[in-house]
Design a protein around this nucleic acid. Sequence first.
DNA 1: GCCAACGTTGGC
DNA 2: GCCAACGTTGGC
Length: 155
Amino acid sequence: MAAKYWLVKSEPDVFSWDDLKKSKNQTTYWDGVRNYQARNFLRDEMKKGDLVLFYHSNTEPLAVMGVCEVVREGYPDFTQFDPDNDHYDPKADPKNPTWFMVDVKLKKEFKHPVTLDEIKSNPKLKNLKLIQRGNRLSVMPVTKGEFEEIVKMGN
DNA sequence: GCCAACGTTGGC
DNA sequence: GCCAACGTTGGC
């Protein structure tokens, strides 16, 4: 099974590329996703070895910072059961968890972060879900071609 | 800080 | 099951 390609958004105020760099083994768990479509990707579709573009949303610079690799496949997001956590979900049932997460590890830092403007002005990326109107998914699939184009732009 | 777009909630 | 109201996202 060939690896798949993904793009995840993170607000750098919450968790930035630098935070990932400083994490133990440059690996982190991707917690706090509370959207069913994104949850399904995390739970069912993301597999070990899949490659993930890491995008900074909401705060400058709006850009893809680099590439991560999935190192642990979907497992229950423990923050849903923690009342002190921002992502606590009082309806979540430990026996049948609602929300899932994966672990990702830093694989490659772009020499040149690929900004939203650059993505928008590249005709090869015009179908990228990220730039489609009103898209609010925090985890989304990208095609191999889109992935390779962004990696090329980052080097 | 604004606001368009969207997902979720809840009354009916 | 519809749909209005509401809250959140995220670019500008």
